[in-house]
Design a protein around this nucleic acid. Structure first.
Length: 649
DNA sequence: GCGGATCAC
DNA sequence: TATGGTGATCCGC
């Protein structure tokens, strides 16, 4: 910007010095050119004076201090990495079946080979690889897929087939890790460390062998990722898909490099919405997290600094265990249909749903205390209405229907395209109840196999659960999800300890985490905030087995755009996303980390935050990580104010 | 506790 | 002309 003729080193100093000389009142309004010119004149006039020399020295000192701070910060983060290496001991594998539904269908309908087809109707759960060449993707509406590929063949869903084949596949996986975690019908996490050791083979060879076994026994192919933790393994399994595998070298440098250019969207828990929010603040890749760490620390409450930093460093849980306990939180049923306005017809749909729900509740052995009605208008706006009871509700269709009606009737008249009922605040009727045993728990579920749910429940149950676990312990303390608290936490704690030891402890007020929790953490992991909630979600969902689109995360352009448009259309306008920091503003700012009040501009604040970050932020983040997690919320207080009307169509 | 949102699959 | 279903979590009320 200014005198480019200066020697290399002073150039930077000069800029800040000039700024310093200009005094604290450099408003941002004046804007660059005028202000720089003014600053220059002031600097020129001050030259040679004692004041000038003193300021020069002060500026130099500050610059050096900042250099030290940055170095310290880098060392701290490096320290985390180094510590992390201690934890590179486990070979974690994520296996993902290739185009699972499509390839299973090929086993039953060989004439489909080489043809473009999709599984599903309204929305495709899977597209054959042939169809993908046309741009057809899972999650894509059928009519769009058809436009992309007029010859597309639509194959109806056959859950029985997928469940059966999934069983076979999982059985293979289990040979390599008895504690394998079936993350969904076509995905699993394994820890093959023990297997590799026992059989004296390397992880890559092991996985190659396993995938070959799968293919040999099921004629289905799988892709896999091998990495030191689940997050990385999952990302890696996508790298050489289909029918490939990717081994992420277990050294810090490789991991950091790997993460650096990785689109943040690849991280589990970062969906379309958060991708856009992060993009709006300049974060597209995991490396950008580091670049914008100062801003992110200010946005901690919204984004979850802890989660993002861990992600940037490639740190995540490496605990693999079967989806065990019955931690189901809800049972529900919903159906989409041609939009209806007639009260009678709508009630009929509701009754059908009530019947389905009754079946599900009884089959699964649950009741609950809260019933939630969900309906979607023909405008696609979704609403829910709930009612809680003091008692366990009756799971009889008539009673579910009655409650549903009670919730729905006041809303009418409406034009509705979906109705659903869900029961929450569950009670597990088959759990180690007062007198009963788990008796029917493993009893074969004979009925007609048309229900995918049942099949998948079978699937889960077949993962031999130790029976004793179930009746021995109080429901409360049979809490294995506890481990989900990954070792990363402990390691970070250690690192922080080290860093703290080097210097005087910086005061860290847990800014928003009211309490530093020393109590045992709640069931299931409570890692970072925000995104982590979705991680938990993913973890938890493994126990019930999800059954949605296979291979979902293949972003499609057009309809995604439309979806988000629709979403924002119903609200006010697109939230105008402004730079959260006024880059030139000077004033009283509060450091979000140490909560200290600072009289500085943004640059100063940034420097200060860097300072805090290098020593305290990680610890603070850890502290917070141990308490229940907050979210990834609206954009700060400033515009968080309700755009939140409760209107309905 | 309720309702809206987001996310995974 | 026709965009799914199940389950989980978080936040602001």
């Amino acid at each position: 910007m200014d005198s480019g003729t200066n020697p290399p080193e002073p150039s930077q100093d000069t800029a800040s010095l000039v700024q310093r000389l200009a005094g604290p009142s450099t408003g941002k309004a004046g804007l660059a050119k005028d202000q720089t010119e003014i600053n220059r004149i002031i600097a020129e006039a001050s030259k040679g004076s004692k004041f000038y020399e003193n300021e020069k020295k002060k500026d130099k000192d500050l610059t050096e201090r900042i250099t030290r701070v940055l170095k310290q910060r880098d060392e701290a983060l490096q320290g985390v990495d180094i510590q992390m290496e201690r934890d590179l001991s486990q070979y974690i594998v994520h296996v993902d079946m290739d185009a699972f539904f499509a390839n299973v269908e090929l086993l039953y309908q060989p004439d489909l080979a080489g043809k473009p087809f999709g599984v599903g109707r309204g929305v495709l759960t899977t597209a054959s690889y042939e169809a993908r060449k046309y741009g057809v993707r899972s999650g894509m509406p059928g009519f769009i897929a058809e436009k992309l590929c007029p010859d597309l063949i639509f194959v109806p869903i056959n859950w029985d087939r997928y469940a059966e084949n999934s069983q076979k596949v999982m059985d293979v996986f289990r040979r390599y890790d008895p504690n394998m975690n079936a993350a969904s019908i076509d995905e699993a996490y394994l820890n093959i460390t023990a297997y590799c050791k026992d059989h004296n083979i390397g992880p890559e060879e092991c996985v190659r062998e396993m995938r070959a076994k799968v293919q040999e026994e099921t004629n289905l192919t799988a892709s896999a990722g091998i990495a030191p933790n689940k997050m990385l393994a999952k990302i890696c399994s996508d790298k050489n898909k289909p029918n490939g595998q990717f081994y992420l070298s277990f050294d810090r440098k490789t991991i950091v490099t790997f993460m650096h250019d990785l689109p943040i969207r690849k991280i589990q828990g970062v969906g379309r919405v958060n991708e856009r929010l992060l993009e709006a603040v300049g974060i597209k890749t995991c490396g950008d997290v580091f670049t914008h760490r100062a801003m992110l620390s200010l946005m901690d409450k919204q984004f979850g600094l802890d989660f993002l930093l861990k992600t940037y460093l490639g740190i995540a849980s490496n605990v693999v265990q079967p989806g065990q306990r019955e931690e189901r939180k809800s049972v529900g049923s919903e159906r989409t249909f041609k939009a209806l306005s007639s009260k009678e017809k709508i009630l009929q749909k509701l009754e059908e749903i009530a019947l389905e729900l009754e079946g599900d509740l009884n089959r699964l052995g649950f009741t609950g205390k809260t019933v939630t009605l969900k309906y979607k208008l023909d405008t696609y706006q979704v609403f829910t209405r709930a009612r809680s009871f003091d008692r366990w509700i009756s799971t009889k269709k008539e009673d579910l229907f009655a409650t549903g009606k009670e919730l729905l009737l006041p809303e009418l008249p409406l034009t509705i395209r979906l109705i659903g009922l869900r029961v929450t605040k569950l009670k597990d009727l088959r759990a180690s109840s007062p007198s009963g045993g788990i008796k029917r728990f493993f009893e074969p579920l004979n009925t007609s196999a048309q229900k995918r749910r049942k099949l998948l429940d079978d699937l889960e149950q077949s993962a031999d659960l130790p029976v004793m676990e179930l009746n021995q312990t109080e429901p409360e303390e049979a809490m294995p999800g506890f481990y989900e608290h990954d070792e990363a936490d402990e390691e970070l704690d250690m690192v922080v300890d080290n860093v703290e030891g080097e210097d005087h402890p910086l005061q860290i007020h847990a800014t928003e985490t009211t309490v530093v929790q020393t109590r045992p953490r709640p069931p299931v992991s409570a890692p970072a905030r925000a995104f982590s909630s979705r991680q938990q979600n993913a973890e938890a969902s493994t126990s019930s087995g999800s059954r949605g689109a296979v291979e979902s995360r293949t972003a499609t352009t057009s309809y995604i755009t439309r979806a988000s448009e629709a979403a924002s259309r119903s609200r006010s306008a697109e939230p105008s996303i402004e730079a959260p920091l006024d880059t030139g503003a000077t004033g009283t700012l509060q450091c979000p980390i140490c909560t200290k009040t600072l009289e500085t501009d943004n640059q100063g604040l940034n420097s200060h935050i860097d300072f805090c970050l290098s020593r305290g932020a990680i610890m603070a983040a850890q502290t917070k990580a141990k308490s229940p997690v907050k979210g990834f919320k609206s954009w700060g207080k400033k515009n968080s104010k309700s755009s939140h009307g409760k209107r309905k169509g």
